[in-house]
Design a protein around this nucleic acid. Structure first.
Length: 352
DNA sequence: AATACGTGGCC
DNA sequence: TGGCCAAGTAT
C-alpha cells in the first residue's frame, strides 16, 4: 500500500465494508431484505436472542417465537410462565423476563410504539449499550456506535489495539465511532458483525478474503489473529448437588425456581443445596423412601461446574409436596432448563 | 470494576 | 475432549 497514506482510513473502511455487505450479506429471518423496512419488534427480539447466543441456536427459536407472539401487544399480554417455558434451553433467562417487562413498558409508557431514540431504548429492561445502539441503527436507521464482540475484534485488529480486554473497550469504542458512517448505520453495524462472523474470525481469520485488509493495521504488522488480547480466565469451581425425582400416577413433581438468580423463574426438578461436597439427601422436598442412583449428571455453567446426584422416590403415599405434578409423557412441554432436561433424560433411561 | 448469569457448537 | 467462543446486561 501507499506508505504515505494514513490508515486505517475511516471513509475508506465504511465504503469498502458497505460494498462488501451489498454482495455478501447473510439472509436472516429477522433481517430486512434490501429496500425493505425492518420490523422493530423483530429486530429487538432477534438482538436479545442473539446476546451471547449463536445464530444457529436462535434461528428456530426466533421463528417459533414470532409465530406465537408476533408483536409488542401480544407479548405484553403473555403469561409469564409460558414465556419462560418458550425460552427454555436458550440460557440467560433474565432475557425472557426482560422481554416481557420491556413489551409491557412499550405498551404502558410509549403508547405501544417502540421508541426510536437510543437513549430512550436504553431505559427499557434488557436493552444495554449494545442492544439499544443496534436497534436504533438497524430498526430506525439512526447513527449509533454498535459494539459487540465481533466489532471489538474487527476494530482491535483494524487499529492494532493491543491493550487487553476488557480495559481496551474505551479505546475500541472510540475507534469504532470514527469509522461509523452517518448514512446506512444499520447496514454498517450488520456488516461489521457479518465480517467478524465470516471473515475476521477469532482463529485463522480469512484476511485474503477481507475487504478491509488494505486498511488493517494488525494485518500490516503481521499477526491479526493475536488480537484482541484477552484477560486470563479464572478457574471454575466444582459444585455438587442432588436432584429429587418424585413420581405419582405417571406425573413428576416440578417446582418453579425463585424469580431472580440462577435459572430464575424457570420450572425445575427439586434440588437441595449446591455446595462444595455432595450433599446427599439434605433438603429433599418431602419425606420418602429416597434411593440414590449410581449415575450423576454433569453440567457446566458460565462460572462453575456442577455434578448432580439423582435421588428417586415414588410408588407409595407421601405427604403433600409444594409444586406441580407434571405428566411425565409431556415433560418436553414443561420448559425445563437444559440441566434438568439432562437429569430427567438420565433418570428415564433407567441407567441413571 | 468485577461478578453473576446458560447453552451449544466447534476444533 | 475440554477449552474457547457467541449480536451482553444487571448490579
Amino acid at each position: 500500500m501507499d506508505a504515505t497514506r494514513s490508515y486505517p482510513d475511516a471513509a475508506a473502511i465504511s465504503a469498502l465494508l458497505l460494498a462488501w455487505y451489498d454482495r455478501h450479506r447473510r439472509v436472516l429471518p429477522w433481517r430486512a431484505l434490501p429496500g425493505e423496512t425492518a420490523d422493530p419488534y423483530r429486530v429487538w427480539l432477534s438482538e436479545v436472542m442473539l446476546q451471547q447466543t449463536t445464530v444457529a441456536a436462535v434461528r428456530p427459536r426466533f421463528a417459533a417465537w414470532v409465530a406465537r407472539w408476533p408483536d409488542f401487544a401480544s407479548l405484553a399480554a403473555a403469561e409469564e410462565a409460558e414465556v419462560m417455558a418458550a425460552w427454555a434451553g436458550l440460557g440467560y433467562y433474565a432475557r425472557a423476563r426482560n422481554l416481557v417487562a420491556a413489551a409491557k413498558a412499550v405498551v404502558a409508557d410509549h403508547g405501544g410504539v417502540f421508541p426510536q431514540d437510543e437513549a430512550v431504548l436504553r431505559t427499557l429492561p434488557g436493552l444495554g449499550a449494545y442492544t439499544a445502539a443496534a436497534v436504533a441503527a438497524i430498526a430506525f436507521g439512526r447513527r449509533a456506535v454498535v459494539v459487540d464482540a465481533n466489532v471489538e475484534r474487527v476494530v482491535a485488529r483494524l487499529f492494532a489495539i493491543r491493550q487487553p480486554l476488557p480495559q481496551a473497550r474505551v479505546a475500541i469504542r472510540a475507534a469504532a465511532d470514527t469509522i461509523t458512517p452517518d448514512a446506512r448505520a444499520g447496514d454498517f453495524a450488520q456488516a461489521m458483525m457479518d465480517l467478524g462472523s465470516a471473515i475476521c474470525t477469532p482463529k485463522k481469520p480469512s484476511c485474503l478474503l477481507c475487504p478491509l485488509a488494505a486498511e488493517c493495521r494488525a494485518r500490516h504488522e503481521g499477526s491479526p489473529d493475536a488480537l484482541p488480547v484477552k484477560a486470563a480466565k479464572k478457574a471454575k469451581p466444582q459444585r455438587h448437588g442432588t436432584i429429587f425425582w418424585l413420581e405419582r400416577d405417571g406425573a413428576v413433581l416440578l417446582v418453579t425456581r425463585p424469580g431472580k438468580g440462577l435459572l430464575g423463574g424457570m420450572r425445575a426438578l427439586p434440588t437441595g443445596p449446591w455446595s462444595d461436597a455432595p450433599p446427599g439427601l439434605a433438603d429433599a422436598p418431602v419425606t420418602a423412601d429416597w434411593q440414590m442412583r449410581n449415575a450423576t449428571v454433569a453440567h457446566g455453567f458460565t462460572h462453575f461446574d456442577i455434578e448432580l446426584a439423582l435421588a428417586v422416590a415414588g410408588g407409595q403415599a407421601h405427604q403433600a409436596a409444594e409444586g406441580e405434578w407434571w405428566p411425565i409423557a409431556e415433560l418436553d412441554r414443561a420448559g425445563l432448563p437444559t440441566l434438568f432436561a439432562k437429569a430427567a433424560a438420565a433418570i428415564m433411561r433407567k441407567d441413571g
